[in-house]
Design a protein around this nucleic acid. Structure first.
Length: 913
RNA sequence: GGGCGGAUAGCUCAGCUGGAAGAGCAUCGGCCUUACAAGCCGGAGGUCACAGGUUCGAGCCCUGUUCCGCCUACCA
């Protein structure tokens, strides 16, 4: 055991808590404590023995080069709430932390570092470069992990994983080899998305489409041979990329386009090149767009590529993998950067009289999701996963095996899987899992193996391994089982895997539904025979207060680390939780976090107040305390039971905002505003029995509230918990969810309290609205004749509280009591309230105030009686609804009548002067 | 082009299976009432985007419309 706060002698009682809550100090202390004590490291044996139900989550591994942003903070907060809540529910909780190696991003970072030294990666060579990346990882790779720590995430640090770890790399190889052997991985020459800057292929979903202002050039392609029957001698094509015409292999028109029917089958002459191209017909061509004539450049356009395969056209690459015109381009253009070439081509066309015109044209352009440079379609040798069969299984698993929350994302998930194309998994970089395939330099045999082969098994010739590495998402797709020890020993799978796979829920942003979630589904189902998670909870994106995506370039980023430092982690977590309603974006502003910091302060101060009154454990048990207990005590215990239900239900249903709201209201508006104020009388009174009873209730409610709030605000709750007297287990994180106490349910107390609050609020309203000096104590008369059943008893028993809460110095309560005509008045639940005000205020104001009240009552009266008298209501509506409406109408009529009468009395008094 | 979501108080949003419109912040008025001025008490503020429909009854269900987001797509 370590010397942390929980193991020190608890500082309970008076002065246990300093005046102000200092989050930084408290947080650091508990983070250290949890980690040193391995509080969140579960034992798989407790699951395997059947002693506990498992609950597991794998963290969405952040990019190892990344820094924590608000999206992470939200994601981690929600996961932490679930994990901490499930521990309270008695589950064996495993939350696996880790990072991914982010192939392209990390390589970029290190290359930039090298550049500063005036070096390129080729100067180092592959091996040295990869070593260099590992060095970088060693030095900076823990940054984001420490940031996760600082949020209080209750992950099991013993389970920490990195996608390039030995075990995870083994999983990657195993999966690759098996998919290859099953014919689900193949290598081939295809057109792919190519990033010139990162110098690698990208998968379809790694390309982001952004609208761009472009131009549309219309270019004449002269017909070879005789003019068309109508005398035309050329076709005009429209293109946004004139430089690609050097790679044109055909011109296509729509087969039913009357304008071009006669041209089909003829040849045109490619401008600036001079070679003849066929004119083909294909219904893909949109007659409405441009001129209806489409030039076909298979090597540099995805759609043209597809057409070229259909029509068996050649593929001519004219732009190389760095974005320069290659040897297939005519001499004058060779070696030019493609954009430079574009200008030259346009100029040359113009000079040759082949350019019709140029118009502005907005279209969407693909960009690299890592570096934002324009994506070039590029033909090259790549490795692909044949996703069809995998996607089919992944689709079928939702919602039967895996449920998505909120469910509207199901459709998006289906949509993507239904239209999925083969997944390009090879990347032309060095940092990552190198493809485990070797080619025999002798016989050309391809060997794909888990273990490195040393020679060709067929001819014994020397082998050369593939240069490419795998897409980072390929390894991320295995995360739910690779992190738990798969494949390991196949006969005896890891205990962790047996205990915690499949995971309970995946919590992540909807933006990586495709990148990651769908692929994990594919891999999990294929290799484990089980979906990797039972639930997927997709939360919204965190945006700025205008609803814009936060980005460094816009400068609207709210840094979670700055916020936690400034307002405390609990305040930020609570803010995010409050706004985490399902299916909605979160518009965050610093002001909101600041607002919830006030709530943290409120909690702290209420605990300080409680501790001041709890020098030691109360002498009465709760059971004893409840005998002849006060209204306040019975009511708050009753409400506590209801809050337990609300919080528990909301947590199971991922209604995070409801957890927050329910606790906020209970703590602030009920516990602090009413219970504590009412308890003060007992706590400072002479009645030892009442005092001890109320102390017991105060302690019970405070401690259980800390437990309920703990998943959302782990630090302040643990800090307070650790100084409460009479708590056996100082580790709140491992304490069970507060047990239900059916005997504390007390509807009568709820009703009585509502009446009591009505009286107090009624008097306060009279006071404030008539601007009576708050210090001025007033007399109070209440006629309980028509009040609720037991109302008199409630008011009599709590008379001293009415005095203190409403600033009353004398009361006269009973059936038939009447105050002077010159009174401020109210009707509460049938009871008439009088606050004699002769000589205190101007009664004209009170007459006006009553007018306003009467107006409100009239509005409600009209609505209710209209409803009741509406044809069919009594016949069709359920009996209980009708009865309730009738009762309501009676109550309103009664209140209105009484109030009107009271106003008349007042007016009469006024007339008399 | 297809899909999804949103439109409720000045702002940000709740409102679960249809049964008297809610919260926070902001605002106005009054209070340093010894846990808390990061606080307390009270007030004001809404034709629930628009138009129809179903129903005894609609913020909620159905149809259409208008705006605003996002995702997706082969219009060069």
């Amino acid at each position: 055991m370590s010397d942390t706060a929980a193991t020190e002698a608890p500082r309970t009682g008076e002065n246990a808590l300093p005046k102000g809550y200092e989050p930084a100090d408290v947080e650091a202390r508990w983070i250290r404590h949890w980690e040193e004590n391995k509080t969140f490291t579960p034992d798989p044996a407790e699951v395997l023995s059947g002693a506990k139900q498992p609950f597991s989550i794998v963290i969405p591994p952040p990019n190892v080069t990344g820094a924590l942003h608000m999206g992470h903070a939200l994601d981690l907060t929600l996961q932490d709430i679930l994990c901490r809540f499930m521990r309270q529910q008695g589950r064996s909780v495993l939350w696996v932390p880790g990072t991914d190696h982010a192939g392209i991003a990390t390589q970029n970072v290190v290359e930039r570092q090298l550049k500063k030294e005036g070096k390129k990666r080729d100067d180092l060579g592959r091996e040295k470069f990869v070593e260099r990346v590992w060095e970088w990882k060693k030095e900076y790779g823990d940054r984001i992990l420490n940031q996760i720590r600082s949020l209080g995430a209750s992950v099991d640090w013993d389970s920490l994983r990195f996608t390039m770890d030995e075990g995870l790399s083994k999983a990657v190889r195993e999966v690759f080899v098996r998919l290859y052997d099953e014919g689900l991985i193949y290598k081939g020459n295809y057109i792919v998305n190519w990033c010139n800057r990162c110098h690698t292929a990208l998968a379809d979903d790694e390309v982001e489409h952004a609208p761009k202002k472009g131009k549309l050039w219309r270019i004449r392609y002269k017909l070879a041979g005789a003019p068309l029957p109508d005398g035309r001698t050329e076709l005009v094509v429209a293109t946004t990329r004139p430089e690609t015409l050097l790679g044109d292999v055909a011109v296509a028109v729509h087969p039913e386009d009357d304008r071009y029917k006669d041209a089909v089958g003829r040849k045109v002459i490619l401008p600036l090149v001079g070679k003849e191209l066929p004119v083909i017909a294909d219904s893909y061509v949109d007659r409405e767009f441009g001129t209806g004539c489409l030039k076909i450049t298979p090597a540099h356009d995805m759609n043209d590529w597809a057409l070229s395969r259909k029509h068996d056209l050649p593929v001519i690459t004219v732009i190389d993998d760095k974005g320069f015109m290659n040897e297939n381009a005519p001499e004058p253009y060779r070696g030019m950067a493609s954009l430079v070439c574009r200008e030259r081509i346009v100029a040359d066309l113009d000079a040759a009289g082949l350019l019709v015109d140029v118009t502005d044209h907005d279209h969407s352009v693909g960009e690299c999701y890592r570096c934002k440079s324009v994506i070039e379609p590029h033909v090259s040798e790549q490795w692909f996963v044949k996703v069809g069969p995998l996607a089919k299984a992944a689709r079928a698993a939702v919602p039967s095996l895996t449920q998505i929350f909120p469910p509207q994302w199901e459709k998006t998930y289906y949509e993507w899987l239904d239209n999925i194309r083969d997944w390009c998994i090879s990347r032309q970089i060095w940092w990552g899992h190198r493809i485990p395939a070797w080619t025999c330099q002798n016989c050309g045999e391809m060997i794909v193996r888990v273990e490195d082969p040393d020679k060709c098994p067929k001819c014994g010739g020397p082998l050369k391994q593939e240069d490419d590495v795998l897409d980072t998402w390929f390894s991320s797709a295995l995360w739910p089982f690779s992190t738990m020890g798969w494949p390991g020993d196949k006969e005896h799978p890891a205990a962790k895997l047996r205990a915690y796979y499949p995971t309970s829920v995946l919590v992540t942003g909807f933006d990586i539904l495709f990148f990651w979630v769908a692929r994990m589904m594919m891999m999990g189902l294929h290799f484990m025979g089980e979906a990797p998670f039972k639930h997927v909870y997709l939360h919204a994106l965190v945006r700025d207060e205008q609803g814009k995506k936060m980005s460094k370039s816009t400068g609207n980023v709210i840094d979670p680390l700055v916020m936690t430092k400034k307002y405390g982690t609990d305040a930020m977590r609570f803010t995010l939780t409050s706004f985490a309603a399902m299916g909605r974006d979160i518009k965050l502003s610093e002001k909101r976090i600041e607002g919830y910091r006030h709530f943290v302060n409120k909690i702290w101060n209420s605990a300080r107040f409680a501790l001041m009154n709890l020098p030691g454990e109360p002498e009465l048990t709760l059971h004893e305390a409840m005998e002849n207990s006060s209204l306040a005590n019975r009511w708050i215990l009753h409400r506590l039971e209801e809050v337990k239900d609300e919080v528990e239900r909301a947590a199971f249903e991922y209604r995070f905002n409801d957890i927050a709201q329910s606790l906020y209201r209970f703590i602030w508006s009920e516990f602090c505003d009413w219970f504590v104020e009412m308890a003060k009388a007992d706590l400072s009174g002479d009645n030892a029995c009442a005092k001890e009873g109320t102390r017991r209730v105060l302690l019970t409610v405070l401690s259980e509230t800390m437990a309920l709030l703990h998943p959302v605000m782990p630090f302040i709750t643990q800090e307070i918990w650790s100084v409460l007297p009479g708590i056996a287990d100082r580790e709140l994180a491992l304490a069970p969810f507060p047990a239900r106490r059916p005997e504390c349910r007390d509807e009568a107390a709820a009703r009585d309290m509502a009446f009591f609050q009505g009286i107090v609020t009624g008097v306060r309203a009279i006071r404030t609205e008539l601007t009576i000096d708050p210090a001025k104590k007033l007399p109070l008369i209440i006629d309980t004749a028509d009040g609720p059943a037991g109302g008199l008893a409630v008011l009599t028993a709590n008379e001293h509280l009415i005095r203190s809460l409403a600033r009353i110095d004398s009361t006269d309560i009973g059936p038939g009591k009447t105050g002077p005509r010159a009174s401020g008045t109210a009707v509460v639940d049938g009871a008439r309230v009088f606050v004699p005000l002769k000589g205190v205020v101007d009664f004209g104001a009170e007459v006006a105030r009553l007018d306003k009240e009467l107006g409100k009552l009239d509005k409600q009266l009209n609505a209710t009686s209209a409803k009741l008298s509406a044809p069919g209501f009594a016949g069709h509506a359920p009996a209980d609804i009708v009865a309730a409406e009738k009762e309501k109408l009676a109550g309103l009529k009664d209140a209105r009548g009484k109030l009107a009468e009271l106003q008349e009395r007042l007016k009469a008094a006024l007339a008399e002067g």
